[in-house]
């Protein structure tokens, strides 16, 4: 394997008797778009959690550039340029959509004057609005989070993760909790925005149509292991994938 931007080597993770990651090795080239498939409990979220620092692997290496980031705190990994979204959108419910976006901007802003610089300055709001517009959610800017639809929450979650200098973006089930007719528009928007900035993307997805349409390579998880790592067409034809993941020929 040639050196990718993200190199995962022999990563293991157990929770008591459950092995959530077994000999996981992956190499993701810069700018690639990968998808992770697998039934519930296969270890997809665990993979995302290990790469982003929420869970420390028991052993193995996660190399980002020249650095082994396995076990670093989420905030440090974020600072290095690996960002993520969540299976259940993580937003601040007492803040408006715009304030959530301002928050993301504020954290990525230069820290030195941060006790003085107004969080709602014209500058900051302009930047926040630009991102909200890019994700087509600017019209909701003054609403509080609990009033939003699932799709808007997901988009905001991803938009916030894009506020920094994102090099790798991991999206955990970006279309779960989203109305069926919103799934493709949302993926179109998100993938286009990420591709435009040359971001390397890894997304978890259950819908095989979305997987084939948006990813160039698929990692199929089963029981904490990667059972297939290939192009979408090849993976969907794989016998083990059909047996354990898709439940029959696609």
């Amino acid at each position: 394997m040639s050196a990718g931007v993200l190199e995962v080597r022999d990563v293991q993770k157990s929770f008591g008797a459950v092995t959530a990651a077994k000999d996981i090795s992956v190499s993701v080239p810069k700018g690639a778009i990968y998808s992770l498939i697998g039934s519930n409990g296969a270890g997809k979220t665990t993979f995302v959690n290990m790469v982003t620092g929420y869970i420390k692997p028991d052993s193995g290496e996660i190399n980002f550039g020249s650095r082994n980031i396995a076990g670093l705190a989420p905030r440090l990994i974020t600072r290095l340029g690996i960002h993520r979204s969540f299976q259940i959108a993580q937003l601040c419910n007492e803040l408006t959509v715009e304030e959530n976006m301002l928050l993301a901007g504020a954290i990525h802003h230069d820290e030195r004057l941060s006790f003085f610089r107004h969080a709602h300055s014209a500058d900051a709001r302009e930047r926040a609005m630009a991102t909200l517009e890019r994700f087509h959610i600017a019209e909701h800017r003054n609403r509080l989070i609990p009033e939003l639809s699932g799709g808007v929450k997901k988009l905001l979650d991803i938009a916030m993760a894009m506020a920094g200098e994102t090099q790798v973006m991991l999206l955990d089930e970006p279309t779960s909790g989203v109305a069926a007719d919103e799934k493709f528009p949302i993926m179109d928007l998100v993938i286009e925005a990420l591709r435009a900035e040359g971001v390397t993307v890894i997304f978890v997805e259950h819908d095989m149509e979305i997987v084939t349409r948006y990813s160039e390579r698929v990692l199929a998880f089963y029981d904490g292991q990667i059972i297939a790592d290939d192009t979408p067409d090849e993976v969907l034809l794989d016998e083990k994938v059909q047996r354990y993941v898709t439940g029959g020929p696609a």
Partner: peptide, 16 residues
């Protein structure tokens, strides 16, 4: 603003 967000969702703040 980061303080207000912390009271609301620490995970989000750390992941930003």
């Amino acid at each position: 603003l980061i303080t207000l967000a912390t009271r609301d969702n620490e995970l989000r703040v750390e992941y930003l």
